[in-house]
Design a protein around this nucleic acid. Structure first.
Lengths: 330, 330
DNA sequence: CTGTTAGCGCCTTCAC
DNA sequence: GTGAAGGCGCTAACAG
């Protein structure tokens, strides 16, 4: 059909050379006002749009950022994407988003695909090994991790250890004695949360009990009730790796006739939009997901525009949101 | 640092010409087994990866699909993305995802950006005008819409009219007499749902009452309670444009001390993962979001691989999931 | 200020 | 079977 217009045709229409058109369009170099006007006129008359790939091939920059998230069904990551999108737009970058579906093989494929199309990557909730991530990072194609601290790689993270200390202490303050931790996948975030949990219990002279979620989502939480059921002693409180799992767990406990918070208090990490809408509403350490996305994007753009040597590590803090699921009335 | 390897260097390493390497790598033409072996060896030794943009510039195809969704915070669209990602992977296409943030201007920008990077687009929940969408569609760069039927444009949609007829009839069967419809944005989906609602009421000899959501999300639902409050007669049932709004509404009604379903029954459209986890659990017509993503992607790939004249329209059906929010015990 | 000349890295006819 | 040559569309140095 209608072949796309090329820069040469615009040049001819405006009576100038292709390079002049290029300079005017990109603002690389000012031309005589009259010339510029003729170029713009020709451009709009012909409906010209530069061929992106030719442009990228020629300049070596795409002004695009890749964002790879662990799971698009998890509100934590979608909120993060909102933040990334906003900052990227402000800095006039395009975000190319990909969902790793909690699958490291797929994640690698997507990363390779995005790496070829972007100037830099944000890895949120990566399931790759530290080595793989280090290998991916380079000054020309920087990567920023979210929720993962690796020496030599720029990152944006929450102080999960302190968050976990606070959340666990909150339960202890409610008088809970047998607090179980439902662990997520064995990556940085879970390590920190588990460490905070253990330290809080130790300080209180209580014994830890760690059980592992099958998956860190609704289903995993539902399945976890069976684990709890078998646990001796049966806990009077549960700290969940994330709020999705906590919601699944609470639903399952309701089915089993176990009352929350009277028989078991439940608390989690996250910022699920419905945490306050549930019955009972869910206590959690609120993770500033959107902010993480904003910061990671800002950092990546900085790295792109003025390459640095050291790997900057940005740290944020979670906020305790006490709600019905952990408030035990005496 | 380490400059990327070019095809020329692979050719030199293997003792052949660049064009031979290209043919072997792309399987465009068989070469002597020994030659192919040498090429593959050189490729892995040097860690060669073809430059994507050079390739696209040269071939004119990117093997990438663009998916533009209305709002990444809405579970309907994220589920759709899961479906799209799966089918795209099966057909070895890369999905490039963008979040329009319910903003038509932003949507146009993203579309332009993705259009330049992909072979075809899926528009899910577009806020553009029919004309704009028609203008975007072409046999060389097909687009498939989801949740929108436009003459001449391939689409995948749910039979929303029938879905709405069923949902409204369900409420009527519960004995509700004053059923209000909380309308979403004035696009195809809402038009169909509203039409089904009106027809169902008319058949039952009831009077319709339509109020508009400020936004089709949690916040909009919360704000809608004020509208309902002011409505005369105060309804005994509400049909919500989507489940996000229904959840917001129910939360707000709880605050106001209005009991669901005893004083007002609530029902909606959607497939929110927590619909069954709420108290009361939410009745809805379940929209097969993920399936829509799969079908749209399948259709787009078909269109890409064997261009068609007619614009195929795929239709799916919603399923009634009756839950506590609409079950009125007498 | 403006045009000319070279690539960017790859694929693809077309001869050998 | 294999290689040489030309082009995809644009930008960037370098002249003038």
């Amino acid at each position: 059909m209608r072949k796309p217009v090329r820069i040469f045709e615009v040049a001819r229409e405006a009576g100038v050379s292709p390079s002049t058109v290029s300079k005017v369009l990109n603002g690389t170099q000012r031309m005589a006002a009259a010339t510029e006007a003729r170029v713009w006129k020709a451009v709009s008359k012909l409906g010209y749009h530069a061929n992106l790939h030719a442009q990228i091939l020629s300049t070596g920059r795409s002004r695009a950022l890749g964002v790879v998230i662990l799971d698009i069904l998890n509100p934590h990551f979608t909120a993060l994407v909102k933040g990334a999108g906003q900052v990227a737009a402000e800095r006039s970058y395009t975000v190319l988003l990909a969902d790793a579906e909690e699958n490291p093989r797929r994640e690698q494929e997507l990363i390779q695909s995005l790496k070829a199309r972007t100037d830099g990557l944000i890895l949120a909730g990566s399931r790759l090994s530290d080595e793989e991530i280090v290998a991916l990072h380079s000054p020309e194609q920087p990567i920023v991790t979210v929720g993962r601290r690796i020496a030599g790689v720029p990152s944006v993270t929450v102080d999960e250890y302190t968050a976990s200390l606070q959340l666990t202490s909150h339960l202890i303050a409610q008088g809970c004695k047998h607090i179980t931790y439902l662990a997520g996948p064995p990556f940085w975030v879970n390590q920190e949360r588990e460490r905070g949990y253990r330290d809080a219990l130790q300080q209180a002279g209580l014994a830890p009990q760690v059980l592992s979620l099958t998956t860190p989502d609704l289903l995993g939480g539902e399945q976890a009730s069976a684990l709890l059921w078998a646990a001796r002693p049966f806990p009077d409180a549960v700290v969940c790796y994330n709020d999705l799992a906590a919601i699944g767990l609470m639903a399952s406990l309701k089915t089993l006739g176990v009352k929350v918070p009277q028989e078991v208090a439940v608390a989690a990490f996250g910022n699920h939009p419905l945490a306050a809408h549930l019955s009972p509403s869910l206590t959690h350490m609120e993770i500033p997901s959107r902010k993480l996305g904003e910061l990671a994007t800002g950092l990546l753009v900085e790295l792109l525009e003025c390459p640095r040597e050291e790997a900057i590590q940005v740290i944020q803090y979670a906020v305790l949101r006490p709600r019905e699921s952990s408030i035990i009335r005496v």
